[in-house]
Write a protein that binds this DNA or RNA. Structure first.
Length: 412
RNA sequence: CGGGGUGUUGUGUAAUGGUAGCGCGCUUGGUUUGGGACCAAGUAGUCAGAGUUCGAGUCUCUGCACCCCGACCA
């Protein structure tokens, strides 16, 4: 894409009201725009990142057997009355139409997915199965904060699994853990993400969170010095030793909860009497698990973990483009190189603007694409282009030739 | 929701109760071109409403918005 055609612009100064690094950088670089507290528009660059993240998640959840669906934001009040959450959930947005009929704006989707399952599930032969979606969640956070990390409206991947018995749920739950680790690894958070024991709610002893360590984190976790698992502060009192390896040595860290998996058991199937016939023709209650990842929060966490004083440093897996082509002298050669690379399928953002080199370098560092490809008089005299690695600053050179440059990136 | 703070142009800021100014951005013209370059001319603003006052960005009240700490966060 030609940068001159990108309708968003970078800005030099951070907004005074944005304190968090993720929002400052994402807004300055033109990835997101703040609409109101906790509500952000995702701009073209940001959407490319979100789509990359979404596709990583989709691949891993599909591999887990999840079937993708799309459920509505507007949900019937009666379902929420049935589970008791119409009155008990403080952060539930309620909307009213002209006739006074009320509905919920979904903060989560158990109240939709369980009745949905009920329509199609008749027999034990239909189980197990799991469905998931990427969908907007609305939660009336009394205090939105930390930039895009805690919003009032945000995109979430929520997966729901249905099982005949606990052994089957457990097996799926363990597989989901592995899938989540893969997702966070692919998103560039492998080194900082810890499986964390958290409070289990009413039916299981623990739930599991995936906590990414960063100073921007809202949660306090205790990482086991021995096995690397962690315990959320909320249950640290009950867990004096590591639930996994029984070691007692922990280090305290701030972390962001980037994912959560939870055994719901019959908490939501019971209110809807979701049951099937077993082999003997008897009614058998179904149990559930749920598994969430906030996409915006994940993007924000990647920024919190991967940035320096100049800007964002995107991991290649989620970068909006792989290459930032900087034409310092407005020459036709850069245009050729851009066309050749784009035709070869390399994701390249071409800074073709009529701007000073300093502006282009500064914007490239802020935007944070993995590679900066510099075409300039200086390099052209040597018949080469310069390729700078955003992450470590390493500089390499390639011949001043589109197809050679394509080769360079294809063999990376 | 409790406590604290802040609202001045697109953005960052200045202005004893007395002419709303500056940097960046943006527009136009020119000079530049390896790290946010320079010159010149432009552009645009006091959150909303009420009150006090000869006079309000400034004081008072109400509302709204945003930020921070806490609580909350299947």
């Amino acid at each position: 894409m030609k940068q001159s055609q990108l309708f968003t612009k970078t800005q030099k100064d951070a907004l005074k009201d944005e304190v968090s690094v993720n929002a400052q950088l994402l807004i300055r670089a033109g990835f997101v725009d703040k609409e109101m507290a906790g509500v952000y528009t995702i701009l073209p660059l940001g959407l490319r990142v979100m789509n990359k993240i979404e596709n990583i998640i989709r691949e891993e959840i599909n591999a887990l057997g999840g079937q993708e669906i799309f459920m509505p934001s507007m949900q019937p009040k009666e379902n929420w009355l049935k589970t008791g959450r119409w009155d008990s959930m403080d952060d539930l947005y309620k909307v009213k139409d002209a006739s006074g009929r009320e509905a919920a704006l979904g903060p989560t989707h158990e109240e939709v997915v369980v009745p949905l399952a009920q329509k199609f599930i008749n027999s034990y032969k239909d189980l197990p199965f799991s469905v998931y979606q990427f969908q907007n969640k609305c939660r009336m956070e009394l205090r939105a904060k930390s930039g895009i990390l805690r919003g009032r409206e945000f995109i979430m991947k929520d997966l729901y699994s249905f099982h005949l018995d606990e052994a089957d749920l457990d097996a799926y739950y363990e597989r989901s853990k592995a899938a989540y680790f893969k997702i966070f690894e692919r998103a560039g958070l492998k080194e900082v993400t810890h499986l964390t024991f958290a409070s289990g709610g009413s039916f299981s002893k623990y739930s599991h969170e995936f906590q990414a360590i960063t100073p921007a984190g809202e949660d306090i976790i205790y990482v086991c010095e021995k096995c690397g698992l962690a315990v959320n502060k909320e249950i640290k009192a009950e867990a004096a030793e590591c639930p996994e390896c029984k070691n007692a040595g922990f280090r305290e860290e701030k972390a962001i909860e980037v994912g959560n998996i939870f055994k719901l058991m019959n908490k939501y199937t019971k209110p809807f009497d979701l049951a099937v016939k077993n082999e003997k023709g008897e009614a058998k209650e179904i149990i559930m698990g749920c598994y969430g990842i906030g996409l915006g929060r994940l993007m924000g966490t990647v920024v919190e973990v991967h940035h320096d004083e100049k800007g964002i440093i995107w991991p290649e897996t989620v970068a909006p483009f792989q290459v930032h082509l900087l034409s310092l002298n407005q020459n036709e050669k850069a245009d050729d190189i851009y066309r050749t690379m784009a035709a070869a399928g390399i994701e390249v953002l071409f800074d073709d603007r009529d701007a000073n080199p300093g502006v282009k370098f500064a914007d490239a560092d802020l935007t944070g694409l993995p590679y900066q490809l510099v075409v300039s008089e200086k390099n052209m005299r040597d018949n080469r282009v310069e390729i700078k690695n955003r992450k470590n600053g390493a500089v390499e050179y390639a011949p001043l030739d589109g197809s050679e440059i394509v080769k360079y990136f294809q063999t990376k």
